[in-house]
Simulated scan of single mutants.
Amino acid sequence: MSALRFLALLAVLLATARAGSAARADIVGGRKARRQQFPFLVSLQNQGRHVCGGALVHPLFVLTVASCFQSRNPGIVTVVLGAYDLRRQESSRQRFSVRSISENGYDPQENLNDLLLLQLDREANLTSDVALVPLPPQNATVEPGTSCQVAGWGSRRRGGRLSRFPRVVNVTVTPPDRCRPNNICTRVFTRRGGVCEGDRGTPLVCNGLAHGVASFTLGPCGRGPDFFTRVALFRDWIDSVLNTPSQEHWPEGPPTEPMGGL
């Protein structure tokens, strides 16, 4: 990447980060996922409305992104597992409150280290609708050109309604010179496709492992590139949190501004 192009990319990244909730991400150009196809998907909800995604990585912990909580207390969020049809009351669902949160040096100005672990108030009951997603080892890489999947309840276009069912799209990992070292970037090259409003925090699954979590996107929804926090850089830290659950409860408090999607 040339110096001028790199500086231009950095300028856009900074503008995107400062935009906060205005920088959004949903599944664009995808297809309806099958029931139980992604049993690790998490719907983070505020007053019954889906606002961000996440992934169940331990019976007590959900992996998502810190940027979901820039302007809202995580203590008021409901963590919903086993959801599929957001417009129905499903017997498969399990609901939890957030007991505590753990972050690792999140920088909101540049959207760096955009990762968060939510500890649930009790252990999830693992079923065919609620399962764990495996994580990559520390410092593992994903080769450019790798085909991955991302799924979520985001809308199909900016400003559109959230999807009733999770939708999934196949994406391709871009070369490192079109991304940042702490991120994995993806695009859909043959048509419009990718993430947009409502899917921040949803996992990027490559070769069966959650290699990324959706952080932000550049350009219009579905045009990309889409930036995912690189989970493998934080695996040792994630394991340290999972192995030492907190005994303290996250205090609930009044909401400030609406929680941002991507």
Rank of each mutant, 00 (worst) to 15 (best):
L63I: 02
T64V: 09
A66F: 08
A66Y: 08
A66E: 13
S67K: 13
S67R: 15
C68I: 04
C68N: 02
F69P: 00
Q70Y: 12
S71I: 09
R72M: 14
P74E: 03
P74W: 06
P74Y: 05
I76Y: 05
I76C: 05
I76H: 04
V77S: 05
T78W: 00
T78Y: 01
V79M: 04
L81K: 02
G82D: 10
G82H: 08
Y84D: 06
D85F: 03
L86F: 04
L86E: 06
L86D: 01
L86P: 00
R87Q: 15
R88N: 03
R88G: 00
Q89N: 13
S91G: 03
R93H: 09
Q94L: 09
R95G: 01
F96C: 02
S97T: 13
V98L: 06
V98R: 01
R99V: 05
R99W: 10
S100P: 01
S100R: 12
S100F: 11
S102C: 07
E103C: 02
N104H: 15
G105V: 09
Y106I: 05
D107N: 15
D107G: 05
P108T: 08
Q109E: 14
Q109S: 12
Q109N: 13
Q109I: 11
E110P: 00
E110L: 07
N111T: 08
L112F: 10
